[in-house]
Design a protein around this nucleic acid. Structure first.
Lengths: 229, 229
DNA sequence: CTTGCAGGAATTGCATGCAATCCGAGGGGA
DNA sequence: TCCCCTCGGATTGCATGCAATTCCTGCAAG
């Protein structure tokens, strides 16, 4: 069966999307009760989802204090980007050695979708920009690498939500296109250079810019209850 | 207070140690009931601990089927070691650039403890060998790097438990000593070479060698209930 | 004006009960 | 003999109730 989605899975997915699309901003409190109520399930399932998000680094859970969307510090931001450079280099090297059939096509069509979302000013564009990098990792075929890249990309999104300019399209789409070109030519030097530049460009958007906590999470969550993409 | 250990924390720690010291072998089933009973808590807490172990990759949870100590495949093993080389290189580069005061001393004293445990044929030696690498990561000061290294090291232990020779001391302690020397000289070339060789030596112990499932987990767990090191 | 402290509201941590799910054993039919 | 189907055991998924913990508010003393 394809309906393998237990209730906590659905909540996990919805919350994750809401955070990655910056609908839930860093610092927003996420009480088990409210989440359970808005999704029509008990605290147990909500708690479960929050635990998983915490292990992804997307929410922080303080004992007896509750969960909240994680607020990465500038220090953590540096750690994330340093490690991300390391991991993305590994991805590029692997892909230059062996790019799966139809890999380039998949990348191109993803970038197309990014462009579409960006022109429509859809909040999806924020998430899609990150998922481009996850798609790169998926093409390597290494489950673990996919996992790790997903984590640093998610955390990067969070960092941009915390420090970046509001609603900045985190990734320059041109750079994605250039990267695809270098990968097609199996040129790891160029590809790494582009990637480094790309990540630096993202990193440099870190400007101190604090935002206050969001008030009504139920209102936001209602928009994210559907499991559709 | 230092007693910040909720019940599920204690269970998580105990199970983790038992797995890393290969007292619980890959494939061993871990029913929530049994664990809860042996630790004197309800299934809720046991479940919580199992969820965290699953996100570490140490146990696999199949929906409605229960949890079991993860059985990594040879394919996954390759992924783990490839990524581990990538991450450990990052650690070495960071440490050659900046080694914290007393870092070398900490490493030396850790190796001493490894030697002691090995001579005593204690099961701790298996875990300590892995923790040497975690200590290296800790010296970099990057929380995220510590986290990722911990994951690949844990998974490596699991792989050795599954495929390696029984009770092999996974890491050659001499190589740990050599690595410390290279770090002291701030020689990343040599350090990386040693590390690569070191990891290859570990990886090469992968010999197909299946073991049957362990019968009495309660008996094993009782030895791991204490939170002591 | 600041400081200390008690009371209460909010929230989680945990235990337990019940229903749902999955797998394997065993019987009946071809 | 082989296959399918049903039934039962085992185990989890989820909901709910209660106790424990934390923090915040307000008041009174210095």
């Amino acid at each position: 069966m394809s309906t393998n989605l237990s209730r906590s899975d659905a909540i996990y997915a919805s919350l994750r999307r809401a955070i990655l699309e910056q609908a839930l901003k860093p610092g927003t409190k996420l009480p088990e009760d409210s989440i359970g109520d808005t999704f029509g399930v008990s605290r147990t399932s909500a708690r479960n989802a929050l635990l998983r998000l915490a292990s992804d680094g997307l929410v922080e859970i303080k004992p007896n204090r509750g969960a909240a969307v994680a607020m990465p510090t500038l220090e953590e931001a540096e750690e994330v980007f340093a490690l991300r450079r390391c991991l993305e280099r590994e991805v590029i090297e692997k892909l230059c050695k062996r790019m799966p059939r139809d890999g380039i096509d998949a990348l191109i069509s993803h970038v197309r979708e990014e462009e579409r979302a960006l022109q429509a000013s859809s909040p999806r564009s924020i998430r899609l920009a990150g998922e481009f990098h996850i798609l790169l990792a998926e093409l390597t075929g290494s489950k673990l690498l996919i996992d790790f890249i997903s984590q640093v990309v998610s955390r990067s999104s969070l960092i941009l939500a915390r420090f970046g300019r509001p609603h900045s399209a985190e990734c320059g789409i041109d750079e994605h296109v250039q990267l695809i070109e270098a990968l097609k030519e199996q040129d790891p030097q160029t590809a790494c250079r582009i990637m480094d530049h790309h990540l630096h460009a993202v990193e440099d958007r870190a400007k101190t810019d604090d935002k206050d906590d969001g008030p009504d999470i139920t209102e936001i969550l209602n928009r994210y209850m559907s499991a559709s993409d």
